[in-house]
């Protein structure tokens, strides 16, 4: 009898007007509702990450590559809040400076994925039956491989490195986006308001630009926010496997890779870069979810 149970608690992101199922239309005022605590924290984290990526010197004035063997394997302490690694480099400085490459890889990979998906998805949705058939079968083949495996395949062919791993992650995420874009665009292209625009005498190009693309793509850009978190994790995973950024570059995945040999003795070498990955991924995901809920209204 779950249907009859009263709703106990609404989660942080829920709007206050929990009765829109009843009265039907929400009021205009509900549109500009305030963000919940989790969303504000996520925004704050992303703000800090952006500062770290653009002006790392502001948060950590030191040199992430400066070696000081006398200071090797120091546990977290005053002066080295995250400890030091096997060469005496300050982990905190490296985590801060690692934000840029990690975020750039995440954002660039998602960008590549979306760009590819846009071409494939829109071609399939709007290009007629033959194109749709071809693209859809191609996407199904890509779907047969787990995403990370596809990325590994690309790296195997084109060799490891930051650029290839970014492209690889982008390629691996493209089929998922493409499928969503295709179904969105198809639904919108058949929507009554598109027909209404035809009846008003609008040209195909104008209908495409004013109605179909915005309505089909807005929900996708919400997914992109969610995707960036995933792309950061994947890029870090590739670096960890030694296929992306290579030590001693200050990149979170590469730092994990370097720290794994000392896991038993120097936990902070892996813990803090790992924490950064989790926090970055979580923050973008929380924000993406909030946008998604808002968009669903």
């Amino acid at each position: 009898m779950t249907l009859l149970e009263p709703e106990v608690e609404s989660d942080a992101g829920r709007p206050a007007d929990g009765r829109r199922g009843h009265a039907g239309s929400g009021h205009g005022s509900a549109r500009g509702r305030v963000l919940g605590v989790a969303q504000w924290v996520a925004l704050g984290v992303i703000g800090v990450l952006l500062v770290a990526a653009v002006l790392p010197g502001l948060l950590a004035p030191g040199d992430p590559l400066a070696i000081d063997p006398a200071q090797a394997f120091l546990s977290p302490r005053w002066g080295h809040p995250f400890g030091t690694d096997e060469s005496g480099r300050d982990i905190y400085t490296r985590v801060v400076h690692g934000a840029a490459p990690s975020l750039v890889i995440g954002v660039a990979a998602t960008g590549i994925g979306i760009a590819l998906a846009l071409v494939l998805g829109l071609a399939a949705a709007l290009g007629g039956r033959v194109v749709d058939f071809g693209v859809s079968r191609f996407l199904e083949v890509l779907f047969a491989f787990p995403g990370l495996l596809l990325a590994l395949l690309v790296i195997t062919v084109y060799g490891p490195g930051v650029v290839t791993s970014t492209i690889a992650v982008g390629l691996a995420t493209a089929p998922g986006y493409a499928r969503i874009i295709r179904s969105q665009a198809r639904a919108v292209a058949g929507a009554p308001y598109v027909e209404a625009a035809v009846v008003l005498g609008r040209s195909r190009a104008r209908i495409l630009g004013r109605h179909i693309l915005p309505n089909a793509l807005l929900p996708v850009f919400v997914l992109v926010t969610l995707g960036i978190g995933q792309a950061i994790v994947w890029a870090a995973a590739l670096s960890y496997l030694g296929l992306g950024a290579e030590p001693p570059t200050a990149e979170w995945g590469a730092m994990l890779f370097a720290g794994k040999n000392y896991l038993a003795t120097a936990w902070w070498m892996t813990f803090f870069p790992g924490l950064a990955i989790v926090v970055a991924a979580a923050a973008t995901t929380v924000l993406g979810r909030a946008l998604q809920k808002r968009g669903a209204r």
Binding site: P192, Y193, A196, N215, L218
Partner: peptide, 10 residues
């Protein structure tokens, strides 16, 4: 008949 769906929701 269905006015709502005949309007671009944006």
């Amino acid at each position: 008949q269905d006015a709502l769906s005949s309007f671009d929701p944006r």
